[in-house]
Simulated assay, not measured.
Amino acid sequence: MPRILTVGAAQLGPIQREESRSSAVARMIELMRQAKANGCDLVVYPEAALTAFFPHWWIDDEAEIDSYFESAMPSNETAPLFAEAERLGIGFHLGYPELAFEDGRKRRFNTAIMVDKSGRIVGKYRKIHLPGHPEHRPDAVFQNLEKRYFETGNLGWPVWETMGGRLGMMICNDRRWPESYRVMGLQGVEMIVLGYNTPKHNPPAPDHDRLGNFHNQLVMQAGAYQNATWVVGVAKAGLEAGVDQIGGSCIIAPTGEVVAQAVTEDDELVVARCDLDLGNSYKNSTFNFAKHREPQTYGMIVERKGAVIA
Rank of each mutant, 00 (worst) to 15 (best):
I90P: 10
A85M: 07
K127E: 13
A63Y: 13
E84C: 04
G91P: 15
P134A: 08
M114V: 11
I90Y: 11
N38P: 11
E70K: 10
F82D: 00
H136Y: 08
H56Q: 01
S118N: 10
P74I: 13
L81F: 04
P80E: 03
K127I: 04
A49N: 13
A63P: 05
Y45G: 06
R107C: 09
F54T: 01
A85F: 05
G132I: 10
S67L: 08
F69N: 09
K36S: 14
Y125G: 04
F53S: 00
R105S: 14
E86N: 09
W58T: 00
G123W: 13
F69G: 12
K124S: 04
K127C: 09
I121W: 02
E84N: 02
L50H: 09
P97C: 04
P134E: 06
H136R: 08
D66A: 15
I90F: 13
E62N: 10
K117H: 15
I59E: 04
D116T: 09
E84I: 01
N38A: 15
A72N: 08
A79E: 05
I59S: 01
M73N: 02
A72Q: 11
Y45C: 08
M114Y: 06
R105E: 11
V115I: 15
I113M: 02
W58K: 03
I128M: 12
P131H: 09
Y96L: 13
I128S: 09
I128P: 01
T111N: 04
P138I: 01
F54E: 01
E70H: 13
I90Q: 14
F109Q: 00
M73G: 04
E47W: 01
G123R: 12
F82A: 03
E135A: 07
G95R: 01
G89C: 10
K124Y: 00
H133D: 15
E98S: 07
L50V: 12
P46W: 05
F53R: 00
M114I: 12
R87H: 05
T51R: 07
H129P: 11
P134N: 05
K36R: 14
Y68R: 14
E102R: 09
A63D: 15
P131E: 08
R137W: 05
S75T: 11
Y96C: 08
M73S: 02
S75P: 03
F109E: 00
R107H: 07
E47A: 10
D103C: 09
K106S: 11
M73Q: 02
R120S: 15
V44H: 05
M73V: 02
A79Y: 03
A83P: 10
D60G: 14
R107P: 12
F53G: 00
M73R: 03
A63F: 14
V122Y: 11
G89A: 11
S67Y: 06
P55K: 00
A35K: 11
V43T: 07
D103K: 13
R87F: 02
A72F: 06
R105W: 03
F82C: 03
G104W: 07
N38G: 15
A37P: 03
I113C: 01
I121D: 01
C40I: 10
F69S: 12
K106R: 07
P55N: 05
P55I: 00
Y45A: 08
E64A: 12
W57T: 00
T51W: 04
R126C: 10
I65R: 09
I121R: 06
I59V: 15
E86W: 06
A49C: 15
H56A: 00
D60W: 14
T111C: 07
A37T: 14
L130E: 04
I59D: 00
E47G: 03
V44R: 03
N38V: 10
E77V: 11
